[in-house]
Design a protein around this nucleic acid. Structure first.
Lengths: 218, 218, 218, 218
DNA sequence: AATGAATGAGCCTTCATTCAT
DNA sequence: AATGAATGAAGGCTCATTCAT
């Protein structure tokens, strides 16, 4: 999960330093987590380094010791975010055997009670709005999509070889499936009033099952 | 189109303006258009009031006379943006007679040579990232989606009564169609390298035609 | 004189604005003067923009309106400083008719009661220490020296044509004279305890009169 | 020479150091030398303690162990600098027998290929600009000048007793000579474009020989 | 209606110094 | 003796907003 610590507001005293060698990794993880929460809650545009310092229990200088600029830190947050989201996606998918169930295994992201939802969506929309004007972010987006397409492609290939799916254009299908997922997710998250979780899951299933046959090569 | 003036950067001489009461409307339109262009180019986070003043050919005080705060101005920009996008969508759809063609008439938004593309996408992503944290924006988003769903629903209803589409749940289908459109558009715009216009149009068509039958009531 | 205003600490009220068109020049002069005093008193290294704001009776933003960065402002201060010092030097020299007296007319700079002394020396030493590491400053230094050499050369030429000085290498002599002046001035200002004004004036005169004959071409 | 070590940037292994009481002297010398180089290269205003730590191959804490504040360290650097410069001056002068040659023996400081030049001048100008506002520095300057005047006075006295120089006011002459040297050196270093080494040496010789007779007591 | 000078809060960043280990 | 993590004050700069003209 994205925010796994139980005490993310605790001030870091000079005494509580865990031995030494992993300190940097530990601190960076603390900072990233604090930043993730803070950004998710308030939006990139409204988050100050001070906010993150407070959330991380560090002073300005302490934070600067690990991340040298706001830009660096934010980018690291997004990298970490995609890592974790992708990790969870892969794990969730791996728990299913049936190829179709694998494709549909992302519906945990349509779950408002899931602890990742209030983090993932705000982060994602901030990410996209930055990406429009930033090539480094564009590259990260591209890589994330690639990873995801590979994941979906594997499930599709398995379905084809199992004879469950028709012979279809795997990559294109995977890209379309993931796009649809994103489209429905956006709507579900931002206009909850008109888009229930049931609608989202249902729409996703219908779209995907429909697609499998439209993309059939013959 | 979103930016319709032909001389968007020209400084406006004070003398050549009509001293009539419509001056306010004229000035507000000038400002909105200038702001729209400026935001689209640089992103909300990077746009200053000064930037917009320059683009609008007005001074700080002049702009303040019409929009009393940055927040007000930006909200007005987004309102205007959705108005114009929706207007164009409706007009484009009205040019088609066939219900299916109506549903597919949005593919002008997958056209990189369309002058609206470099405006609409940046504005949209900025809008979404603000919406996450702002209820006023959430309301505007909701209304925009409603309008769009009505538009699509009309086409769907016509298709059903014409016997071209099966009897399906009109509203849900409309919501799903518009979500899919958004999902594909996001991908197409932000990862052009891997998502061609051909893919986008094709994916959109396949998804929609597939959907029409999955949503059939029986 | 370098600091000519009588009330350089007065706060600038919004009411006291003198008409309009020369406002920028007036403000810039106020700021430069305030900065000059502040730097002279505390040294570049210890002066903050806030100090200068206070001295100039302006807010941070007000100052930024006229000088966009500390670097810009400081450079402008040094430019102004050299302008004024040179202007005074030229005027003082012009008051003498005799060529030798012209060469010696700089002794006003060995006058501790002269209001320029406590400004000029601190500014000069700060300038030189920056110049070591800054090519833009080197250029300004070069130009200043050029101007001064021209001034001295004119006096030397007059002395030669009047038959008062031997035929000598004018430029080299001028450069040496000005260097000697600087050397003595430095000593006089920074080690007053051991270098009286009388010593300075006397040393300067002896050096110059001695020089006139060593530089004779024959 | 000012920077005498051959491996000025090499990191110092802790093990290879003698654990004897002279360690402190060794460390202090390392630090001073590193600081001298760093300040000369970048200027006091631009040098951080970190820069010096890196140059000295020590950590922040390690440096703090020997010099308790930046101010302390910098002052020690300037003390050391004057010591070394003076030492070299005295040795160079001692190599000459003729009193006039002794007076002129400083021309090694007009040598751009001399390894001390790029250190001595930057350090000197930084020193002077600090001295303006600091009484401790003023005292150091005063002492340095005293030492130098003594050195020159000895040569002058020898010249008088040898009958080579007229009977002149020794101290005043010494002060003037050293001032002239400084004046020419400043010019030579900071405006190389217009002041060649030949000019500097020549101007220095002419000034001094001229002086010897103007300062004659009768 | 329009200008733009002026404000001042707020932000990111730097850096000398401290201190537990 | 030496490290380097952490502090926190301070500084330069930005920018939305105000207001006299």
């Amino acid at each position: 999960m994205l925010g796994d610590s139980t005490n993310n507001k605790k001030r870091i005293g000079r005494n509580s330093m865990p031995s030494i060698p992993e300190l940097e990794a530990i601190r960076k993880a603390q900072i990233l987590e604090a930043a993730l929460f803070t950004i998710a809650e308030n939006g990139c545009a409204n988050v100050t380094m001070d906010d993150i310092c407070k959330a991380a229990g560090l002073s300005k200088g302490g934070l600067a010791h690990y991340y040298h600029s706001k830009k660096d830190l934010f980018y690291a947050v997004f990298e970490e975010f995609f890592d974790q989201i992708f990790k969870r996606s892969r794990e969730t998918m791996a728990q299913k055997d049936d190829p179709l169930e694998k494709l549909l295994s992302f519906d945990w992201l349509y779950d408002r009670t899931d602890p990742d939802a209030p983090l993932a969506y705000p982060i994602l929309f901030d990410f996209l709005s930055i990406t429009v004007h930033d090539d480094q972010y564009k590259k990260l987006y591209h890589e994330w999509i690639c990873n995801w397409v590979v994941l979906l492609s594997d499930a599709l290939k398995q379905g084809i070889s199992d004879g469950l799916f028709p012979d279809l254009d795997v990559e294109k299908t995977a890209r379309t499936i993931s796009s649809i997922y994103n489209g429905i997710a956006t709507r579900w998250y931002l206009d909850h009033e008109s888009h229930s979780t049931e609608w989202a899951i249902d729409a996703f299933k219908r779209s995907i099952t429909g697609l499998l046959y439209t993309y059939a090569k013959k």
